[in-house]
């Protein structure tokens, strides 16, 4: 399996080449096009209960789709729903990533996806909800973001502060605490930042350059209100 990003920028697409018999899993609805040799199967990753808990808990789609090159080599085109960049990671079997619920686009069949409950303060204040995806295993992982994706590399004990709704994914070797953006509560919220996450290395943090919640709030003012 080989993947490349087409049209990098705001409206990218991923082309994945599959050898005969190879398959990948993708977010349901992510397929744009494929060779006639590729079959689409719907699969409840982790069984019915796993899928159900993922749907209920993370709000992630109930089914992942499996794209299988069952009748010879083929290719698939995949795209996310929102405008924004795509990043391809190669998981080595040791590195694990925490991915916020909208961040997963596709992955090799050998990667392992599970829903994970966050601690109370992180779930309540972190902006990703109580449940996130924990993705490990070995193989290609494709993530998407809202806006551009930015990689922050942290050395051991190096710290970095990220606004809580800009997170896409972070390695399991990092840890983070939620804190106020400014020293006082009032200043924190009047500054427009509210709460931030203080990450501590080592590891990698992927952030998105746009905040989906703020964008939603901004666009809402242009939607006519029906009487």
């Amino acid at each position: 399996m080989r993947s490349e990003i087409l049209y990098p920028g705001a409206f990218p697409m991923v082309r994945v080449e599959l050898a005969s018999g190879e398959h990948i899993k993708a977010e349901s609805g992510a397929m744009v096009g494929s060779s006639p040799t590729v079959d689409v199967e719907s699969k409840m990753e982790g069984g019915f209960l796993g899928a159900l808990s993922r749907k209920l808990l993370t709000g992630e789609k109930f089914f992942f789709q499996t794209l299988r090159a069952s009748r010879g080599d083929g290719e698939v085109l995949l795209a996310p729903t929102v405008p924004g960049e795509i990043v391809i990671l190669e998981l080595d079997g040791v590195n694990e990533y925490m991915v916020q619920k909208d961040g997963f686009l596709a992955g090799a069949d050998s990667i392992v996806i599970e829903s994970k409950m966050q601690s109370l303060s992180r779930g309540l204040l972190g902006g990703e909800g109580f449940f996130i995806l924990k993705i490990g295993g070995k193989g290609t992982l494709v993530l998407n973001s809202f806006g551009a994706i930015h990689k922050i590399e942290l050395k051991p004990d190096q710290e970095y502060i990220v606004d809580n709704s800009h997170l896409v994914a972070w390695s399991a070797t990092t840890s983070y605490n939620i804190e106020k953006a400014a020293s006082g509560w009032v200043a924190s919220f009047t500054s427009g930042e509210g709460l931030v996450c203080r990450f501590r290395g080592p590891g990698v943090v992927y952030i998105q350059s746009r905040n989906p919640g703020s964008f939603g709030a901004w666009i809402r003012q242009f939607i006519p209100v029906s009487e």
């Binding site: 590399e153 050395k155 070797t173 290395g201 080592p202 590891g203 990698v204």
Partner: peptide
């Protein structure tokens, strides 16, 4: 088949 991640100056940030 690796079973650990090592971090340091000359290694990548993801270990």
């Amino acid at each position: 088949s690796p079973n650990a991640l090592c971090f340091g100056e000359e290694f990548p940030a993801s270990g």
